[in-house]
Amino acid sequence: MTTFFTSDQHFGHANIIKYCDRPFADVPEMDEGIIARWNETVGPDDEVWVLGDYAMGDRARGLSYLSRMNGTKYLVSGNHDLCSPVERNGHLHVQQYADAGFAAVVSQAEVKLPEVVPGEGGLRVLLNHFPYEGDSHTEEDRHAQFRLRDLRQTLVCGHVHDDWRVRRSPEGTLQVNVGVDVWDFRPVSAEDLHRFILEQGDATPSRR
Rank of each mutant, 00 (worst) to 15 (best):
T3H: 00
T6L: 05
S7P: 01
S7T: 01
D8I: 02
D8H: 06
Q9I: 07
F11R: 01
G12F: 08
H13V: 00
H13S: 00
A14V: 03
A14C: 03
N15E: 11
N15P: 01
I16T: 13
I16Q: 06
I16H: 09
I17R: 06
I17F: 14
K18T: 10
Y19D: 15
A25T: 07
P28E: 08
P28Y: 03
E29H: 10
M30V: 00
E32L: 07
G33T: 07
G33F: 09
I35K: 01
I35A: 04
A36I: 04
R37I: 04
R37H: 00
W38E: 04
W38L: 02
W38H: 09
E40V: 05
P44T: 11
P44K: 11
D45M: 06
D46K: 06
V50S: 09
D53E: 12
D53W: 06
Y54E: 02
M56F: 10
G57Q: 14
D58K: 09
D58W: 12
R59F: 13
R61K: 14
L63R: 07
Y65Q: 12
R68C: 03
R68M: 10
M69Q: 12
M69G: 11
N70R: 09
N70P: 06
G71I: 04
G71A: 05
K73I: 13
K73S: 10
K73N: 10
K73M: 13
L75I: 06
L75P: 03
S77E: 15
S77R: 07
L82V: 10
C83F: 13
S84M: 12
S84L: 14
V86I: 15
R88A: 15
R88S: 15
N89I: 14
H93P: 00
V94M: 02
Q95D: 15
A98R: 13
A100N: 10
G101Q: 08
A103K: 11
S107V: 11
A109T: 09
E110M: 05
E110W: 01
V111K: 00
V111P: 00
K112T: 15
L113E: 05
P118R: 08
G122M: 05
G122H: 07
H129D: 06
F130M: 04
Y132M: 13
Y132T: 14
G134Q: 10
S136N: 15
S136D: 15
H137E: 08
E140C: 06
E140L: 13
R142N: 14
L148Y: 04
L148H: 03
R149S: 13
D150T: 03
Q153Y: 01
T154Q: 03
D163W: 06
S169H: 05
E171K: 09
N177A: 09
D184H: 09
F185C: 08
A190N: 00
A190G: 01
H194V: 05
I197A: 01
P205L: 15
S206K: 11
R208M: 05
